[in-house]
Structures are given as structure tokens and as C-alpha cells.
Computed example of a mutant assay.
Amino acid sequence: MEWMHDTLPYRINDSWEELEPEPDVIYALLQTSYWAAHRSRETVLRSLENSLCFGLYHGETQVGFMRVVTDYTTFTWVCDVIVHPDHRGRGLGKSLMQFLVEHPAVRDTRMVLGTKDAHGLYEQYGFERLELMRRPIPAAAQ
């Protein structure tokens, strides 16, 4: 599935073939975040292999990423949503979320996430703020 921006040269897709050659781009993006900077490259690569992933592209260059964990039936956990700083402020985070909530593989699932920020963005797409319990990440998974 692919989405093209109406007026800007951006597109989003769920093509593993296009995403797969770019793990270093994804790793670098996630290293700039507060929630994933501690992840090793190996952990990031394994998480990609076991998730539904979406790439955000400016022309042929990947400038954003979204990853969800899902059983494709009952739940979808939104884990990583990030846009390169040079491309922020253009509504691309909203475009990623719209793409997700309309995606036929997961649109009928209950979507959940845990975040310290961007609550307003997620609430626009039907997410509710809830206190989530969190357990520490085992040292082996870091």
C-alpha cells in the first residue's frame, strides 16, 4: 500500500523491499529519540523483522519511519513514529498516523501506544491517554 502527498514530494508505504536496504537510516533516526536511543543496532534490526513497518520518503530518500506490533486481529501497538528533524513541521506525522488508521491490515484492530509527548497528534486519531504500566527492559534486550 502506498500514499502520495497531494502537493509535496513525500510518500509513505509498507514495502519491506524498499525499507529493508535502509536499516542504518532507521537506526540513526531512532538514535535521536528519547525512547529508542538506548537500543543497539541488533535490537533495532530484530524489531524491524518482527513488526509491521512503514517508511516515509522524500523522493527516494527515507526521512521517516513508523513501526507497529500487531496480531492483525485484535490489537496494534504503535511503537516508533519518527520524522527526520529537517522534515518536521509539514504534517508528516499526521500523514503517517492517517496511513496507519486506514491501513487495511490493521484498521479494525484496537490501537494502543505509550508516549511522553505528541498526545494531541495521537488523540486526533482516536487514541486516549491512559496510564501504562511499564516493566524494565532486560539487559539482554538492550
Rank of each mutant, 00 (worst) to 15 (best):
V69F: 15
P104D: 05
G91W: 04
A140Q: 15
H87A: 00
Y72S: 04
L130D: 05
W77R: 03
Y27I: 10
Y57W: 11
Y122T: 05
D71M: 14
H5L: 03
S15N: 11
G55H: 05
E131V: 15
L8P: 12
S40P: 05
M4S: 10
D80I: 00
N50F: 03
D71S: 12
D24S: 09
L92V: 06
A118Y: 08
F65G: 05
L56P: 05
Q62K: 14
S95H: 12
R88N: 12
Q31M: 13
C79F: 05
L121V: 03
P104Y: 07
M4K: 14
E123K: 10
D117Q: 12
E2G: 05
T109G: 07
T74H: 06
D86K: 13
A105Y: 13
V25R: 12
R129F: 06
F65Y: 15
E18F: 07
L30Q: 00
R39K: 13
L19Q: 03
R11L: 12
G114K: 06
T73P: 03
I137C: 09
C79E: 14
S33D: 05
W3N: 02
R67T: 01
L19S: 04
H5Q: 02
H84F: 10
Y34A: 10
S15I: 07
L29S: 11
L92R: 08
Y10M: 04
M1N: 13
E42M: 07
Q98Y: 08
L132W: 15
W16A: 07
D86F: 08
F75P: 14
R90K: 15
F75Y: 15
T61N: 08
C53I: 03
H5W: 02
F127C: 09
L8I: 02
E22A: 06
T43R: 13
R90T: 00
R11I: 07
S40I: 03
P136I: 01
T74K: 00
P104Q: 04
G91D: 04
A28Q: 15
A28H: 13
G126V: 09
F65N: 11
A139K: 15
Y34E: 10
R88P: 13
H58I: 01
G93F: 14
R107N: 14
H84C: 01
T115F: 08
K116C: 00
G120R: 14
W77A: 07
